[in-house]
Nucleic acid binder design. Structure first.
Length: 597
RNA sequence: GGGGGUGUGGCGCAAUUGGUUAGCGUACCAGACUGUCGAUCUGGUGGUUGCGGGUUCGAGCCCCGUCACCCUCGCCA
């Protein structure tokens, strides 16, 4: 490669005692330097690992000077001879710690400026800074390890599915708006001014078209784009393992996904994932955990106090029930010993989740105490506590609110209580949540698809659906949940025209609107569509869990900030007026001002 | 769109109730040191306290606005 050193012969991290005496040519970056005024050490690092390069009295004066002149993170080539270290100088902390490379020749390939942050494993720098210099962040071992994990996991997924007869198919990025319900990213068409592409929120319709096309078993590591606000577990662009199968029912789809998960557990974590995974209906999950993605490592459960809450004379409960709301609580076994401050923290968690407050009482040997206690004196109070199965030493926390908000608060309460009492423990807990409702209702009473409008209804509810009912209709949709995180979801799709029409009708989508939005799919379904269904697994979330990372940004090479920006490229950015003119686009005055400069 | 948090040399932090010249570690620069391994020791450079305004004799600290980032509710099937 370079004339002075010669072509690369080894990776730094690969050298072992058996290589002693060998001449090696290494390429990499300068890590720590240690200068003893006569003997110089440099930790040379490449992707394979770190090796100590040394210049002592055996090295030429020129080589010693060259090594001593290196700075942190210079990119260099080194030629030298591997030698075994004296016993007292070995470093058992490192795989290469038995050897070192006596330098013969050093060539600086590129100097490094002063660094914005240190290249160390336990870096504590602002994330924004790490993102602006992501290429430096990636030099850190933990980042490299996460990207390696991601690459190995992607490979394992592909191997498993190809072995099972799946075909990897790429679908368009420039497409038209699809029915997922999120905001689209739009791309203007130059050749057809006024018309726009949409970037895919998922390949949903294309994979169904693949089924009509006879692919039978499709998969893709698909990039998906949604213009919505971000979170620690949400990016505007993310990757999902998208798959679809023909001529199968739920059982085969769930089994395939389970085998993929088991393979990932085996290859990435080195652990066996016991199959089949447990299943729970959506209704049961809501009832017991106030969540459609319960963390089963948390043993706390929700109790419904709606029947007793109206009998104790507490106006907040009465009002909630009168307004069609819920009164439900969480019993914290042994929670009576919690100090007031910790209980306040629980209430704050409920308030943060949108609840007006949290009623609570401690249960003692001689009756309840705390704010709620004065309503719990008589038989009604005893019945109330009994309904929650309270025993002396417990803390009972109760939420009374409109149904949706109550459930959000109860979920938050359960999570916070699990944290406060340190109850969330044990091995990873995966489960299927099944029998989701087909439709959900927004606060204005409008109905929308809980999954998407091509989800098949549960066979037992088909008659009700065709009769025009919406409430309580179950679907053939299912979610995969791990440790309280929704990893993915899927469903059996509708392939019967009358059922599809009934669903559209239930959603208030008339025949014209249906044709306008989904014509290509409805057309395709005229030509002998096979029964089919599929699944989509959020790989960023899954890999974050497998890597033990707090945020999916840690397993994405170049992630966005919560405002959807990229600190590295400074995207999104204003563009030239000429580009806009060519596309026939003009900003409104207000926006135009903002974009000027 | 709503709520909360953070913002002080490149980076991590400190600075009494508002009070002298904004301090420490690390990185960086220079010097010393022949076996270190996140080397050590000595010395040094480096700050418009995110930005704008206000209160005050006096603001890193108090008030208002704004920006960026993070968390969260809505939103995202």
């Amino acid at each position: 490669m370079t004339e002075a050193v010669g072509g690369r012969s080894h990776g730094c991290g690969t050298l072992r005692a058996g290589d002693a005496g060998r001449e090696v040519r290494l390429y990499g970056w300068v890590g720590a330097r240690r200068d003893h005024g006569g003997v110089y050490f440099v930790d040379l690092r490449d992707r394979s690992g770190i090796i100590q390069v040394v210049a002592d009295e055996e090295a030429t004066e020129e080589a010693r000077a060259a090594l001593a002149g290196l700075r942190l993170e210079d990119c260099v080539a080194v030629r030298g001879r591997v030698r075994r270290r004296d016993e007292r100088n070995r470093n058992p902390e490192r795989p290469t710690g038995e050897v070192e490379v006596l330098v013969e020749r050093v060539e600086v390939l590129a100097r490094c400026d002063r660094l914005p942050f240190e290249i160390v494993d336990d870096l504590d720098a602002p994330e924004e800074l790490r993102l602006r210099y992501r290429y430096l962040d990636l030099r850190r071992r933990p980042m490299l390890a996460r990207l390696e994990l991601r690459s190995r996991a992607n490979h394992a997924v592909r191997c498993q599915l190809v072995e099972e007869g799946f075909l990897e198919v790429e679908t368009p990025l420039l497409t038209r708006s699809t029915p997922e319900g999120a905001r689209d990213y739009l791309v203007p068409s130059r050749v057809r001014p006024g018309s726009w592409y949409a970037l895919p929120q998922s390949p949903q319709l294309f994979k169904q078209l693949c089924m009509v096309g006879g692919i039978e078993r499709y998969f893709q590591l698909a990039r998906c784009l949604r213009d919505e606000d971000l979170r620690a577990d949400r990016q505007p662009e993310f990757t999902q393992l998208d798959l679809e199968l023909s001529f199968v029912d739920e059982e085969e789809i769930l089994a395939v996904v389970e085998r993929v998960m088991a393979r990932l557990f085996a290859e990435i974590l080195g652990r066996e994932l016991p199959l089949p995974l447990p299943r729970m209906s959506h209704a049961e999950a809501i009832r017991r955990f106030a969540s459609d993605k319960p963390d089963l490592r948390n043993p706390l459960e929700i109790c419904d106090l709606g029947r007793q809450a109206g009998t104790i004379g507490f106006r907040i409960f009465d009002d909630a029930l009168a307004g069609g709301g819920l009164v439900r609580g969480v019993r914290l076994p042994g929670g009576a010993r919690l100090p007031r401050k910790r209980i306040d923290a629980l209430e704050q968690a409920c308030k943060d989740a949108g609840a007006a407050g949290m009623a609570w009482c401690k249960v003692g040997e001689d009756g309840p105490s705390g704010p709620l206690a004065r309503f719990l004196g008589g038989d009604a109070g005893a019945a109330f506590l009994a309904a929650a199965d309270c025993r002396p030493g417990d803390l009972l926390a109760v939420i009374a609110d409109r149904p949706r908000r109550a459930l959000v608060a109860l979920d938050a309460l359960r999570r916070a209580a699990g944290r406060e009492l340190d109850l969330v423990a044990g091995p990873d807990r995966l489960l299927w949540v099944t029998d989701f409702p087909l439709f959900e209702q927004d606060d204005d009473g409008g109905w929308f698809p809980a999954h998407h409008p091509f989800t098949a209804p549960h066979p037992d509810d088909l008659e009700d659906l065709l009769a025009g009912r919406r409430e309580g209709i179950r679907s053939r949709a299912y979610d995969l949940v791990m440790n309280g995180v929704e990893l993915g979801s899927g469903s059996i799709r509708i392939h019967r025209r009358d059922v599809q029409e009934a669903v559209f009708a239930a959603l208030g989508i008339g025949p014209e609107e249906a044709r306008r939005r989904f014509r290509f799919l409805l057309d395709a379904f005229r030509f002998g569509p096979p029964p089919h269904g599929g699944f989509a697994l959020g790989l960023d979330r899954l890999y974050a869990l497998l890597a033990g990372a707090d945020s999916i940004r840690e397993v994405i090479a170049f992630p966005k900030t919560t405002a959807g920006g990229c600190p590295l490229t400074e995207a999104p950015a204003p563009i030239d007026p000429e580009q806009l003119a060519e596309l026939g686009i003009r900003f409104t005055a207000e926006r135009g001002e903002a974009e000027k400069e």
